[in-house]
Amino acid sequence: MRCTSRLIPFGFVILLLLVPMPSTFGHTPGSSCQTPERTEGRCVHFSSCRLVLRHYAMYKEHMPPVIMRFLQRARCRPKNEGYHLCCELKDVIPANANSKLK
């Protein structure tokens, strides 16, 4: 069985961490939240969100500004706690899943 990893290059993480933070977060990792599109989501680390992984697979470090702004608005935890965003429920990768990007 071949094991694949979901490594996100350091440059992409830096881009996400340098964005302005909302004034309040109020979400603990794994808690319910509302996405920028006003749908129900879960506050998860960016590597547990299929949406982020799909965008990164498509654009690498050349993420379009509109997608970067969306990801900035989705932040749900302060940057000193790691990059967490409000991920739509259908895109959350379960912690115990050994899934691949589809």
Rank of each mutant, 00 (worst) to 15 (best):
E81Y: 15
D91K: 12
P29K: 06
H84N: 14
T35Y: 05
L101K: 08
R54S: 10
P78F: 03
S32V: 06
R50I: 08
M63L: 15
R38T: 06
A97P: 00
A57S: 15
P64R: 14
H45E: 10
F70I: 00
K79Y: 01
N98E: 00
R54W: 09
S32E: 09
C33H: 07
R75M: 06
V44P: 01
E81T: 10
F46A: 02
T39H: 14
C33E: 04
N96H: 07
V52I: 13
D91H: 15
G82Y: 13
C76H: 09
A57I: 03
G30A: 01
H55N: 11
E40C: 07
H84W: 11
G41T: 03
E88K: 11
R77P: 03
T28H: 12
R50V: 05
G30Y: 06
A74M: 06
C87Q: 05
R50F: 10
V66R: 15
N80V: 11
F46G: 00
P64H: 15
R77K: 14
T28P: 07
R42V: 02
L89G: 06
L53T: 04
T39R: 15
S32G: 08
F46L: 11
K79I: 01
H27E: 07
S32P: 09
N98F: 07
K60S: 08
H45L: 12
P65Q: 13
S32A: 11
T39W: 11
R50T: 09
N96R: 02
S48R: 12
P65M: 12
R77M: 11
L85R: 01
P64M: 14
P20R: 11
H84V: 00
C76T: 09
P36Y: 05
F25H: 10
Q72S: 11
A97W: 06
N98Q: 00
E40A: 12
Q72G: 09
